[in-house]
Deep mutational scan, measured.
Amino acid sequence: DIIVVALYDYEAIHHEDLSFQKGDQMVVLEESGEWWKARSLATRKEGYIPSNYVARVDS
């Protein structure tokens, strides 16, 4: 799995977006363009995230 960590807070604009806080970790489910589908490890919610707001966690 690709794990990313939030670099900034993000408040969902559309209902399919995923809100998150700086430091939150998410599993990337699908990478396509600038918006990635991800699942929050904390809340288990899924939605689209702006890929420029996150960084990959080296395992």
Rank of each mutant, 00 (worst) to 15 (best):
A42R: 15
R39F: 12
L41N: 05
K45V: 08
K37N: 05
Y8L: 09
D17K: 09
G47M: 03
S40R: 06
A42K: 14
E11S: 10
P50E: 01
F20K: 00
Y10L: 03
T43Y: 04
F20S: 00
W36P: 02
D1S: 13
D17A: 12
D24Q: 07
V54S: 00
S19H: 05
D17Y: 15
E34S: 12
W35P: 06
H14V: 05
M26D: 00
I13T: 12
Q21W: 08
Y53F: 12
S51I: 08
T43W: 03
I13W: 08
V28L: 13
W35Y: 12
I13Y: 09
V28D: 00
E31N: 14
S59D: 11
L7D: 01
L41T: 08
L18T: 04
N52G: 12
S51E: 04
S51R: 13
S19G: 09
L18M: 10
I2K: 12
G23M: 03
W35M: 12
A38M: 04
L18I: 07
L29M: 08
E46T: 12
V28N: 03
H15Y: 12
D9N: 10
V27D: 02
F20G: 01
Q25N: 08
Y10A: 01
S51M: 11
S59I: 12
D58Y: 11
Q25R: 15
L41A: 05
I2S: 09
R44D: 13
G23L: 02
V5H: 05
R44M: 14
Y10F: 13
Y8T: 06
E34W: 13
V54I: 06
F20C: 03
I2N: 11
Y8E: 07
E34P: 11
A42G: 08
N52Q: 11
Y48E: 02
A42C: 11
I49W: 00
W36M: 13
S32H: 15
S40I: 12
D9I: 04
Y8M: 11
I3F: 08
D9W: 04
K37G: 02
Q21D: 06
G47H: 01
Q21Y: 10
T43G: 06
Y53A: 09
E31F: 15
K22P: 03
Y48K: 09
S32K: 14
V28E: 00
H14P: 02
W36H: 05
D58H: 13
S19V: 04
K37H: 10
E30T: 09
T43M: 03
K37Y: 15
A12Q: 05
K22F: 05
E16W: 15
L18Y: 02
E16R: 14
T43K: 04
E30D: 13
E30Y: 10
W36F: 13
N52C: 13
S19W: 04
A6S: 03
R56H: 09
P50I: 03
S32M: 13
F20M: 04
I49Y: 00
W35G: 04
V57C: 11
I2A: 09
K45G: 07
V4D: 00
E31C: 15
K22H: 05
H15V: 14
R39H: 09
K22Y: 05
V54A: 03
F20H: 01
E11M: 11
Y53W: 07
E30H: 10
W36D: 01
V54W: 02
V5N: 02
G23Q: 03
S51K: 15
Y8F: 12
E31V: 13
L41H: 04
Y8V: 08
G23H: 04
L41G: 03
H14K: 11
F20R: 00
T43R: 03
M26P: 01
S19K: 04
M26E: 01
K37T: 06
Y48M: 14
I3A: 03
K37A: 05
D9L: 03
S59Q: 14
G47S: 01
S51Q: 10
D24T: 05
H14E: 07
S32Q: 11
E31G: 13
G47P: 00
V5M: 08
L7Q: 05
Y48P: 00
A6E: 00
S51F: 09
L18R: 02
D17E: 15
M26S: 00
V5Q: 06
D1P: 15
S19R: 05
S19E: 06
R56V: 12
M26L: 13
A6R: 00
E16A: 11
A6P: 00
V54H: 02
R39I: 11
V54G: 01
R56W: 08
R39P: 01
V28Y: 01
R39S: 06
R44Q: 14
A38L: 04
L18H: 02
V4N: 00
Y48A: 04
I49H: 01
N52V: 09
E31M: 15
F20V: 03
G23C: 08
E46F: 07
E31Y: 14
E11P: 06
R56Q: 08
Q25C: 13
Y10Q: 01
A42W: 06
Y8W: 10
M26H: 02
E30A: 09
G47D: 00
E46M: 08
S19N: 06
G33F: 04
R44V: 06
V54L: 03
N52K: 13
Y53L: 13
K37L: 15
Y8Q: 11
A38W: 02
E31H: 14
V57Q: 08
I49D: 00
A12V: 02
S59K: 09
Y53P: 00
G33I: 04
K45D: 08
I13H: 10
D58I: 12
D9H: 07
E11G: 06
K37C: 11
I49N: 01
Q25L: 15
A38E: 02
R56A: 07
M26G: 01
N52A: 14
Y10K: 03
E31A: 15
W36C: 09
M26T: 01
D24G: 02
E34T: 13
Y48C: 13
A42P: 05
R56T: 07
A55Y: 10
A12W: 02
G33V: 04
A6C: 07
D58N: 13
D24P: 01
H15Q: 13
I13Q: 13
P50V: 02
L29G: 02
G33M: 05
E34G: 09
Y53V: 04
T43C: 05
S59E: 11
R56D: 04
I3R: 07
V57S: 08
V57M: 11
W36N: 03
I13R: 14
V54Q: 00
I13M: 11
L7G: 01
W35D: 03
